[in-house]
Computed example of a mutant assay.
Amino acid sequence: MNFTNFGRYILLLKAVFRKPEKLKIYIKAIFQEMNYVGIGSLGLICIISTFVGAVMTLQIAFQLTSDLIPRTIIGQVTRDSSILELSPTISALVLAGKIGSAISSEIGTMRVTEQIDALEIMGINAPGYLILPKIIAGITMVPFLVIISMFLSILGGYIGGTLSGAITASQYIQGITTDFNPYTITVALVKAFVFGFIITSVAAYEGFYVRGGALEVARSSTKAVVISCISILAADYIVTQLLL
């Protein structure tokens, strides 16, 4: 996204956050988007988080070959890695592919079929009506999904570690309960909030300004996912640097 596109992105956000014409319609749209973003993505996040936690525990156990290091450290590393990095970032990258491409395709199709032009002719704030509910759903439901991901990632580590014999149940539980810092959850939720905004706003921008036909809509969806993933990784570094 070059400087000109970034300027258009900022102008679009200004239009998005303009006062709604009919609040009742916006509220209905917000709940619909929350259902799609949150409930619609729950199964995918559950599966990925559980397996990521299990695999991470096995890899940590494989690296700890010294008898001088207590096995409980496996639970601690799994817990902190899941909360601070894996759950927020991997969930966001997955959602960028699932939700971002869908948002970009939806809005892009409306653009090329002139539905957005029709809304603007009727005096409706098209950016606010189409994009604001998606952004609100993103910044509210992505943190919710990340919380679920944290829990399931740690649970997956427990299942994977105990079934493989890499660690006993008591050692794992002792590890995840030792020296726990609640501030790590705050950092993770801040990341999730930022990631949710990036996923929805970038995808909406790419779809809103698409020109052409079906091929251009497909390309805008791919571009939205790529830019979102890069932006998520950059934001991950910035938030980590600021908060830790």
Results as ranks from 00 to 15, higher is better:
88 P>A: 05
86 L>C: 02
104 S>C: 15
89 T>H: 00
104 S>F: 05
98 K>G: 08
126 A>V: 00
93 L>R: 12
78 T>L: 13
117 D>T: 08
83 I>N: 04
103 I>P: 07
98 K>M: 09
107 I>Q: 05
93 L>M: 13
97 G>K: 07
88 P>M: 04
111 R>K: 14
91 S>F: 06
88 P>Y: 01
106 E>V: 02
114 E>Q: 14
104 S>I: 03
121 I>A: 15
127 P>C: 02
97 G>E: 01
96 A>K: 04
115 Q>C: 11
101 S>A: 14
98 K>L: 12
93 L>N: 11
115 Q>M: 13
96 A>Y: 07
110 M>L: 11
122 M>T: 10
90 I>H: 00
82 S>F: 03
85 E>W: 01
90 I>F: 11
105 S>G: 15
101 S>D: 07
82 S>Q: 13
121 I>C: 14
124 I>H: 10
88 P>T: 02
78 T>D: 13
118 A>R: 11
77 V>L: 15
126 A>Y: 05
112 V>I: 10
99 I>M: 04
91 S>Y: 00
119 L>A: 06
101 S>G: 15
107 I>A: 07
95 L>M: 13
86 L>E: 01
110 M>S: 07
83 I>E: 00
92 A>N: 08
98 K>R: 15
124 I>P: 03
78 T>I: 14
96 A>G: 15
95 L>W: 11
125 N>Y: 10
78 T>P: 04
100 G>T: 08
100 G>V: 05
76 Q>F: 13
107 I>R: 04
101 S>Y: 09
89 T>M: 14
92 A>Q: 00
85 E>S: 00
79 R>G: 09
128 G>F: 09
122 M>C: 12
87 S>N: 01
116 I>T: 10
81 S>Y: 10
105 S>Q: 07
91 S>P: 06
121 I>E: 09
83 I>S: 04
80 D>Y: 12
80 D>W: 10
91 S>Q: 08
99 I>H: 10
114 E>P: 02
79 R>V: 11
98 K>D: 12
115 Q>Y: 01
87 S>I: 03
94 V>H: 06
102 A>G: 02
113 T>P: 00
77 V>I: 15
83 I>A: 02
81 S>F: 12
123 G>F: 03
95 L>S: 09
122 M>S: 14
126 A>Q: 05
109 T>S: 15
123 G>T: 12
125 N>R: 04
103 I>D: 03
116 I>W: 03
79 R>D: 11
92 A>P: 02
75 G>H: 06
121 I>H: 10
94 V>G: 13
75 G>R: 01
105 S>C: 08
93 L>I: 15
84 L>W: 01
88 P>Q: 10
88 P>C: 12
112 V>G: 01
127 P>T: 04
105 S>N: 10
111 R>F: 04
113 T>W: 08
118 A>K: 01
103 I>T: 05
102 A>C: 08
109 T>I: 03
75 G>D: 06
81 S>M: 13
102 A>P: 01
118 A>Y: 04
